[in-house]
Design a protein around this nucleic acid. Structure first.
Length: 734
DNA sequence: CTACCAGTCCTTTTT
DNA sequence: GGACTGGTAG
């Protein structure tokens, strides 16, 4: 039986799957069968009776990864996976907090704020306490609070020594108090509150420490400080942490991920079992050679070298375009040939560093009539009409939720304006009440409108109390006036359809979660203090924003940022916009280890390709409504020349293309003419290559001002982009 | 109270 | 170039 489970694993995979119950660190390179090892490990532990499903906790970062894990385990073992705790950090913390809400100091009906809800809660706090939001931008306050929480710090423990910082700490404390009053928690609060529960409550901690003999962590390189401490606490002294990760694919330091957790884990847990999965089952040799050569330029690595049993395959193709538009035109042409040769469009990915780059490419694809799908837009539960409907549902569940209250109190419009709400907020603050509870304090016409709104919510709560979830949602979208409002709008049809889809989503949710279908069973659930289907659905909506809007299924080209491509693979991959300042991004050069993270990002991008890889860059590009002239990314220079095949001639400089030299197979030479558009100013020209005594050779990106104030922004490649005063800087034409 | 226009600001992002 | 915010006019 277990022979079949383990069949086909290579030596390292087998060693990892069958490790004893001790702390283990699996360094799993791209395409090395990481998920397979993780799921087979779980199946093997259960099948060999080393663990029961109840004794297993598996943590991932995305819902998608969690679902896939459950699906693969179910396919391997004929067991009920329900007893197993497999989920995201946030999902698992939510589960724990629901079960122990009293011990955690939360109301049973606590709601989860997503990032947008949190921001609006902060804006409301600033406004309510008369704080200048120019001096304290809500976004910065949000970052400060989340950073602190993710470092495990409450407002009382954050160390600051300047007045500005002290004010931020004060705002942090006020924000937490506001959330507590309203019965809401943000994403980082889920983790911190759960961590504190385990720290303070010994019986609860011991219960879970004893229960989970095995803790398995996916994408360990992406864990932040708090997540690591949470894992450590939950593991206690007995349970075995099986951590799988790849330091070379750590691309989320900018949002608090700490690769250092891998080394800390190794040291603090005295990990004896470090296993490297280096055989890559995805890509051909040239692609892997390119990836390996690139990543060797990073200094801080645990060390790993991917290899493949497949052949070298095709060379990596490199294309230099005159402009972003020409890069897109070339790409369209190349895609056409690939498709004509029989490759499915969904097997081709176009990757870029930042979302803004997709527009030009989309434009070209659209005009060429090539079906494409852009990842990473609005997701289902983030759409405004859906958030409105959810806000009504949240008020039914928890009337103290002021964020939800403010979102829909005048939507659809019911004659309650800013003035009225100001009065209401003053009254609520004066009596330390929720907005909902304070409506009686506003008199007159406006007060009557407010009272009518509260009556609407109350009657919805009363009338739907015993209805199935889908019918509650239906009643809400109908009686709130949302559907009628969007029907009256000539562009509202999509929104009406989405609201109807929400009813379906509710029905599907109930079916999937196996909620009690009849009244008697529902009562039993209530007696067991299980959260109501509505409460569970609201958590689900916050924790899992749902699918992307783009239609799934049809055979379309895949467009996405490099970040979004992590974990995916394609037959052919285009990495576009490989220019200094863009990839690596200029902002990263100022950050500590920023360039290394950019390089890891490039590493992730390269390793997405199975068979064919294209790299492209453009000499000029429209950015922020301005033409910028860039030079080729240093990352191209870090790849072994032997793996590459240049589709365009190699040029010494970024400028000065001679049209006649273009011999790339399918390039229109005429297009190169647009290069010389640079405007002349103070004797310099945009796009001109100049030499600086300290920074070396660079390309002029912008020219501004005149006379003594004339300035130029110059891209010096590895030295970064500098703004120089032409009157002072000694520049010579190169 | 709503609708429209001007000014600002722009990496990456899951939960 | 475009999304979002804030101010003002109706």
């Amino acid at each position: 039986m277990s022979d079949r489970l383990l069949a086909g694993l290579n030596d390292q995979q087998l060693a990892a799957v069958t490790l004893p119950a001790q702390p283990a660190l699996i360094l799993a390179g791209a395409g090395s069968g990481k998920t397979r090892v993780l799921t087979t490990r779980i199946a093997w532990l259960i099948q060999t009776h080393q663990a029961s499903p109840q004794g297993i906790l598996a943590v991932t970062f995305t819902n998608k990864a969690a679902k896939e894990m459950v699906a693969r385990i179910s396919a391997m073992l004929p067991i009920n996976t329900r007893g197993m705790w497999v989920g995201t950090f946030h999902g698992l913390c939510n589960r724990l907090l629901r079960a122990h809400h009293r011990d955690a100091g939360l109301p049973q009906t606590f709601q989860i704020l997503d990032a947008a809800d949190q921001l609006s809660a902060i804006k409301r706090l600033l406004k309510g306490s008369g704080i200048d939001d120019e001096k304290y931008p809500p976004r910065n306050v949000q970052l400060f609070i989340n950073d602190a929480k993710e470092a495990g710090l409450r407002s009382g423990s954050v160390e600051v020594d300047d007045p500005y910082g002290r004010k931020l700490v004060e705002l942090y404390a006020m924000y937490d108090a506001q959330c507590q009053r309203e019965g809401v928690v943000d994403f980082s609060e889920l983790l911190l509150r759960c961590y504190e529960l385990l720290v303070r409550n010994e019986p609860v901690r011991q219960h879970y420490q004893e229960r989970f003999g095995h803790i398995l962590v996916d994408e360990f390189q992406d864990t932040n400080a708090l997540q690591y401490r949470w894992l450590k606490l939950l593991a206690g002294s007995r349970s075995a942490i099986f951590a799988v990760g790849d330091d070379d694919q750590s691309i989320y330091a900018f949002r608090g991920a700490n690769v250092g957790n891998m080394a800390d884990f190794e040291r603090e847990f005295r990990v004896q079992n470090v296993i490297r999965l280096e055989q890559n089952y995805r890509s051909h040799g040239n692609i892997l050679d390119a990836a390996n050569a690139l990543i060797r330029h990073n200094a801080r690595r645990l060390g790993k070298n991917l290899w493949t049993a497949e052949g070298t395959g095709e060379p990596v193709r490199v294309f230099e375009a005159g402009s972003d538009g020409l890069e897109a035109a070339w790409l369209v042409d190349e895609v056409r040939h690939l498709v004509a040769d029989g490759l499915a469009r969904r097997e081709i990915a176009v990757l870029y560093r930042s979302n803004a780059q997709s527009r030009v490419i989309e434009h070209a694809l659209f005009n060429a009539g090539i079906a494409y799908r852009v990842y990473g837009g609005l997701r289902f539960f983030e759409r405004s009409e859906i958030k409105h409907a959810l806000a009504y549902l949240r008020l039914i569940e928890n009337p103290a939720d002021d964020t939800a209250f403010l979102r829909v109190v005048n939507f659809p419009p019911r004659g309650i304006g800013a003035r009225t709400l100001e009065q209401l907020q003053d009254a609520a603050r004066a009596h330390a009440q929720s907005l909902y509870a304070a409506v009686g304090a506003v008199a007159g016409k406006a007060g009557a409108n407010l009272a009518a709104f509260v009556r609407l919510i109350d009657s919805l709560r009363f009338d739907t109390a015993s209805l199935p979830l889908a019918e509650i949602v239906e009643a809400v979208i109908d009686r709130s006036g949302l559907v009628a409002h969007y029907r009256a709008d000539k562009d509202g049809l999509d929104r009406v359809e989405n609201l109807e889809e929400l009813v379906n989503a509710a029905a599907a949710f109930v079916a999937e979660e196996g909620y009690a279908q009849d009244a008697a069973a529902a009562q039993a659930d209530a007696a067991a203090a299980l959260p109501s289907p509505l409460a569970a659905f609201l958590s689900h909506a916050s924790l899992e924003a749902g699918e992307n809007q783009a239609a799934e299924g049809q055979d379309a080209l895949q467009l996405m940022t490099v970040h979004a491509a992590k974990g995916l693979e394609f037959h052919s991959v285009f990495i576009t916009g490989l220019e200094e300042g863009l990839f690596p991004h200029e902002n990263s050069l100022q950050e500590l280890d920023g360039l290394e993270e950019e390089r890891r990002l490039m590493y992730v991008a390269i390793t997405r390709a199975r068979r064919r890889l294209y790299l492209s860059f453009a000499q000029s590009r429209m950015l922020h409504g301005q033409t910028r002239y860039g030079i080729r990314s240093r990352f191209i220079g870090e790849l072994p020349e032997g793996c590459l095949k240049w589709l365009t001639p190699r040029l010494r400089e970024a400028t000065g293309v001679r049209v006649g030299e273009w011999r790339g197979e399918r390039v229109q030479p005429a297009a190169a003419a647009s290069l010389r558009a640079g405007q002349e100013k103070n004797g310099y020209r945009i796009g001109q290559t100049v030499r600086h005594a300290r920074f070396g050779e660079g390309v002029i990106i912008t020219l501004e001002g005149s006379g003594n104030d004339a300035r130029a922004r110059i891209n010096f490649g590895a030295q970064g982009i500098k703004e120089l005063l032409l009157a002072i800087a000694k520049l010579e034409a190169a």
